[in-house]
Design a protein around this nucleic acid. Structure first.
Length: 288
DNA sequence: CTGTGTTCCTGTTCGC
DNA sequence: TGCGAACAGGAACACA
C-alpha cells in the first residue's frame, strides 16, 4: 500500500498525537508481523516518551527518550488509527467493525490510542538504538530522499548510469531512490513522458552526466510526490489518514490502474504490462 | 555485483 | 451463490 506520500500522510497525522507523550501502555495482540516483535517489546516502550516522529523512505521513525528509535513499516496493508482510550480507533471498515487485524495498540499518556492494523502482516516494527541507526541494515542501503535537495538529475543519472535494467525497475529499487512504489513510479514516468521499458542508463551520457530526460524525470518525481502528499496520499483500499479519512490522490492518477482507458493527453489506450513481477501502466504513444 | 524469481499473508475481484 | 485463480500499494532473500 503505502508509498512515500502515504507514509508521510500518516506521519503528519500521528505526530501531533504522539510527540511529547509517553507510552502509558502497549498492547501486542499479534507479534508475528513481518518479523516477530522482540521479546519484551511492550515493556521496553512502556514509560518512554516520543520525542519526535520522523520518516525515512517508507519507514516511520519514532525517536524515544530512552535513546532508542522505533522503526515502523506499513508493508502492503498496514495502517494506523487514532482513537481515545474511551473509544479506541478500530479497523476502519464501517461494515465489519472487526478488530481482527489490530495487532498493536499504543495507549499514550494523553489518553489517545494509536492502533496498528495490518491484515497481510507484511508490516514491521523494530527497535534500534539511535547511535546505531546509521548502521541499521534496513536503512543503510537506501538511496536519497526524493524530496530532499540533494536528489537531483546529476544524482539520479549517476545511479542509473550503466544500468541495464528498465527505468521502471530502477525507480522501484529503493537503493536508487527511496520511497517510490508501483503507483508513483508509473505516474512519474508518465509525467516525464518516458517509457517504463526504456533502459535506465539512457538518462545519462557515457560519463554519467544527466541529460534532459534525467531533468524531466527528477522534476516529475518531485512533483507527483508533492501533489500526492498534498492530497493526503492515495486510498486504494487500506490507506487512510490517521484520523480515518480517505486520501484523495487516487482520483488524480493519470495511468495507474487505468488499463484500456484513454490517455489523458493523446486519448490513446493506456496499456498494462508486467515488469519485475508487477503491473506497469503507461501510454505507449506519449511515453518514449 | 546484477538481474530475476520466490516468498511471507490475507482479502478482494473476476471468470466460469 | 459458489469456487478457484489471479491479483494487490513491499521488500528480503536465494539463486543464476
Amino acid at each position: 500500500m503505502p508509498e512515500l506520500p502515504e507514509v508521510e500522510t500518516v506521519r503528519r497525522g500521528l505526530a501531533p498525537i504522539m510527540e511529547g507523550q509517553s507510552f502509558a501502555k502497549v498492547e501486542v495482540r499479534r507479534g508475528d508481523l513481518r518479523w516477530p516483535l522482540p521479546r519484551g517489546f511492550a515493556q521496553t516502550l512502556h514509560g518512554k516518551t516520543v520525542e519526535g516522529l520522523g520518516r525515512r523512505a517508507k519507514y516511520l521513525l519514532a525517536d524515544l527518550s530512552s535513546g532508542d528509535v522505533l522503526m515502523m513499516h506499513l508493508g502492503m496493508s498496514g495502517s494506523f488509527r487514532v482513537g481515545k482510550d474511551s473509544a479506541p480507533g478500530k479497523y476502519y471498515h464501517e461494515r465489519s467493525k472487526s478488530t481482527a487485524h489490530d495487532h498493536v495498540v499504543f495507549h499514550m499518556s494523553n489518553g489517545a490510542t494509536v492502533t496498528f492494523n495490518d491484515p497481510r502482516r507484511f508490516g514491521s516494527m523494530k527497535l534500534v538504538s539511535r547511535a546505531k541507526l546509521e548502521n541499521e541494515p534496513l536503512l543503510r542501503a537506501l538511496g536519497p530522499e526524493p524530496l530532499g535537495n540533494e536528489f537531483d538529475a546529476a544524482m539520479l543519472a549517476k545511479a542509473c548510469a550503466g544500468k541495464k535494467t528498465s527505468l521502471k525497475a530502477a525507480l522501484s529499487d529503493q537503493r536508487v531512490v527511496a520511497g517510490l512504489g508501483n503507483i508513483y513510479v508509473c505516474e512519474a514516468l508518465f509525467r516525464a513522458w518516458l517509457s517504463p521499458k526504456r533502459r535506465a542508463s539512457t538518462i545519462a551520457d557515457r560519463h554519467g552526466k544527466p541529460n534532459e530526460r534525467a531533468e524531466k524525470l527528477v522534476a516529475a518525481i518531485k512533483a507527483v510526490l508533492m501533489d500526492a502528499i498534498e492530497a493526503g496520499g492515495s486510498s486504494l483500499r487500506d490507506h487512510r489518514r490517521a484520523d480515518g479519512s480517505l486520501g484523495d490522490f487516487q482520483h488524480n492518477f493519470k495511468v495507474y490502474d487505468r488499463e484500456g482507458e484513454p490517455c489523458p493527453d493523446c486519448k490513446g489506450k493506456i496499456k498494462r504490462i508486467v515488469q519485475v513481477g508487477r503491473s506497469t501502466f503507461y501510454c505507449p504513444s506519449c511515453q518514449k
